[in-house]
Design a protein around this nucleic acid. Structure first.
Length: 599
RNA sequence: GGAGCCGUAGUGUAGCGGUUUAACAUGUCGGCCUGUCACGCCGAAGAUCGCGGGUUCAAAUCCCGUCGGCUCCGCCA
């Protein structure tokens, strides 16, 4: 490197730079050796440029013969226009090239196990094992850059609205409720453990007691649960909390935040206000508490129409307090037997015991169950569901919850299959008025749908004593394209309501003090009304980058089994380390992970 | 905890109706080549068919187990 100073990024050079003497540093993307003339596509973070090594131009040519893909090199030369007819319109730098005078090999490279370019078709395990090569690919770099620009836009916006970013502990206390904790043993306190935070929930509320008024944090959170395409054991939240506000204030602020972020990062203007659905509506119409509003295909309830019908499955479901609901699939009458079987299987995954269908044809209704209905009943069903010739009516008869979720998942499957939406579309919606409580059969008690500090809606307070399951919470989720981006609530700041809540959750005052003592104590010293929200940043980036998994939006993600293929973590540790921590394991460790380092 | 899909040269695939020199593409290495940009042409090397066991005269191929990856259910206040 001595004496060499990088003057430009490879991708920055343009026709205006013609004649300039430049020094570039980057990776050899490709070498085209014509014997007497060598082309090198040189790549760095900014892009690609063609370097020409001509024996006449200097000693670079000799060096270029040694060069291989992914070698790190420095090139000094002059920018010149490409000869007539040799411009490359596919490259931003395609009208010019750099005539290399000097070329220095800064580092050699082994041949990489996959191409360093976009749209590669390799096993994801290989990409994860060689993540540093994967991240060298332009599409991955652009996601990392998008992620950085997004957090910067968030910070800019919240700063302009008077929010302070404050850090909260990573080593904290295990609290009941919620996901499984990751535990960290305390060396100094034998037998005791810290937990990694599932979210900074309690701390941010205490910051409100502390008079911070407006807090945010872009913060790592940890949940020891099974992974999914959109779930990692460690993930990043945008966490916010505000004092002296009401629900509307938070929703409005978040809408402006989203509008700012999408404008600054993607140049997309959102139309405000964002749509809103209540939980009830979302479940009834879309069969989901995170409905994908990029397309219609709404669910229709026909329970009343089939109550007395001759088809026992429907009539019984309606009579026993269940529901019969359906979807009208445009053009679905042409589905094959096999496609119908697939849909039935898809519905079964979510607990539906069966899927009934009726095809609307020119000759009338074609269906294995048509014979159980009168002509009038069939006519009413088709009319209610808006069926037209060529459509397919699908029905699920079950409890309300099963019918809703089964049809909700069918709806998504059909939306995808029938291309009912453009993948590019962005459909935000708020879902509000979540139930405060749900009943847990395993624990035989009520559990909080959101969390134990969520404020019930004031008009439902009387129901707390009579029908707690009907109480709605001042809780809200922001949903984008069927993905839950985040959720929050107005918090309880009144002691009597908090005590009521604990008693509904089955905690005695002593238990509540034992589990949440520090928060309850803080609340006794003058708590402002407050509320907040938290967003899954990884998921947000996933949608913005139009990816199918958050693994693509995290620099170093874990596999579905929670391991890191690059570092081979987790691993066993030295016996002395365990001894120091006063730990003894009862497990035989699983098979060793193979890692790049050991290969 | 459960269901499904996948695992064959560095990479992506074919072969799976049991007997093949395990094929193709690409990459790699060597040679030739002064306007290519997925450069081209010629040649070469490269595979314990994820691992273990079983069935059989014979297994990449069939069976069982196991490991790893992915998707989903449960789980994720």
């Amino acid at each position: 490197m001595a004496g060499l100073h990088r003057s430009h990024g490879c991708g920055e050079l343009r026709a205006e730079d013609t004649g300039k003497e430049v020094t570039l540093m980057g990776w050899v993307h490709r070498r085209r050796d014509h014997g007497g003339l060598i082309f090198i596509d040189l790549r760095d973070r900014s892009g690609l440029v063609q370097v020409v090594c001509d024996p006449e131009a200097g000693p670079a040519f000799k060096k270029a013969e040694e060069v291989r893909n992914e070698y790190v090199v420095a090139v000094t030369g002059r920018v010149r226009p490409r000869p007539e007819g040799t411009a490359n319109p596919k490259l931003a730098t395609g009208t010019i090239e750099v005539e290399a005078r000097k070329l220095r090999i800064l580092n050699r490279a082994k041949t990489p196990p996959f191409y360093i370019e976009d749209n590669i078709d390799v096993d994801e395990a290989l990409r994860l094992r060689y993540r540093y090569l994967d991240l060298r690919r332009p599409e991955m770099q652009s996601i990392m850059y998008l992620r950085y620009r997004t957090t910067r836009a968030i910070r800019d916006f919240l700063d302009s609205r008077g929010f302070w970013e404050i850090e909260t502990p990573m080593l904290t206390r295990s609290t009941p409720e919620g996901a499984r904790d990751f535990l960290v043993p305390s060396r100094l306190r034998p037998g005791e453990f810290f937990a990694l935070p599932q979210s900074p929930q309690l701390f941010k509320q205490i910051l409100m007691v502390a008079g911070i008024e407006r807090y945010f944090q872009i913060v790592r959170c940890f949940r020891d649960e099974d992974l999914r395409a959109d779930r990692q054991p460690e993930f990043t939240q945008l966490d916010m909390e505000m004092s002296f506000i009401q629900r509307e204030d938070i929703l409005n602020l978040v809408e402006e935040l989203m509008a700012h972020v999408f404008r600054e990062t993607l140049g997309i203007e959102l139309t405000l206000p964002l749509p809103r659905l209540t939980y009830q509506e979302a479940m009834a119409r879309f069969g989901s508490d995170k409905p994908d509003l990029r397309f219609g295909l709404e669910i229709t309830d026909v329970s009343d129409l089939v109550r007395g019908c001759g088809f026992k499955v429907f009539a019984d479901a309606a009579a026993r307090g269940g529901v019969v609901r359906g979807l009208c699939v445009p053009g679905g009458a042409s589905f094959s037997r096999r496609e119908l079987d697939e849909l039935t299987r898809a519905a079964a995954v979510f607990g539906a015991k069966g899927l009934a269908w009726m095809a609307v044809t020119a000759e009338g209704i074609r269906s294995p169950i048509a014979k159980f209905f009168t002509g009038q009943e069939l006519q009413d069903l088709v009319a209610r569901m808006g069926g037209k010739e060529g459509d397919l009516l699908l029905f699920v008869a079950d409890s309300e919850a099963v019918a809703a979720t089964a049809l909700g998942s069918l709806r998504l499957e059909l939306g995808r299959r029938l291309h009912l939406y453009e993948p590019e579309q962005l459909a935000f919606t708020w879902v509000t008025d979540f139930p405060l409580l749900e009943y847990s059969p395993e624990e035989k008690r009520y559990v909080a749908v959101h969390h134990p500090f969520t404020m019930p809606m004031e008009e439902d307070w009387p129901l707390l004593d009579t029908e707690p399951l009907k109480v709605r919470a001042l809780a809200y989720d922001l949903v984008l394209n069927g993905v839950e981006l985040g959720g929050g609530s107005i918090r309880i700041h009144r002691r009597d309501i908090q005590e009521k809540m604990f008693s509904l959750l089955g905690f005695s005052p002593d238990e509540a003090r034992e589990k949440f003592g520090f928060l309850l104590e803080a609340f006794e010293y003058g708590t402002p009304p407050h509320g907040g929200i938290a967003f899954g940043l990884d998921r947000m980036i996933m949608i913005m980058a139009r990816r199918d998994t958050i693994r693509d939006c995290i620099a170093f993600p874990k596999t579905q089994s929670g391991t890191c293929l690059m570092t081979a973590a987790p691993s066993t540790v030295a016996p002395e380390q365990l001894l120091e921590l006063h730990l003894k394991t009862t497990a035989r460790p699983a098979g060793k992970l193979s890692s790049a380092g050991k290969a």
